[in-house]
């Protein structure tokens, strides 16, 4: 638990992730090779973050 968080605090990380995801969605449309790799990493990020957050607090 933390003290009351402001809207900026609440939405800073989600906004950053949304921007990265959007870059990932567009990148593979623009080109092949590296452009595809950017897209895999950027869109893979939400999946990795999900797993990281859930595993971190897993009950033993």
């Amino acid at each position: 638990m933390v003290a009351h968080r402001s809207l900026t605090q609440i939405f800073a990380a989600p906004l950053a992730i949304a921007i990265v995801s959007t870059v990932g969605l567009i990148s593979a449309l623009v080109g092949d090779g590296w452009w595809d790799a950017v897209s895999w990493a950027a869109l893979g990020l939400p999946v990795l973050l999900y797993l990281a957050f859930i595993w971190r607090r897993r009950p033993n």
Partner: peptide, 10 residues
């Protein structure tokens, strides 16, 4: 409001 980003209360 009272949770950190990514909170999972296992």
């Amino acid at each position: 409001r009272k949770l950190r980003f990514g909170a999972y209360r296992a």
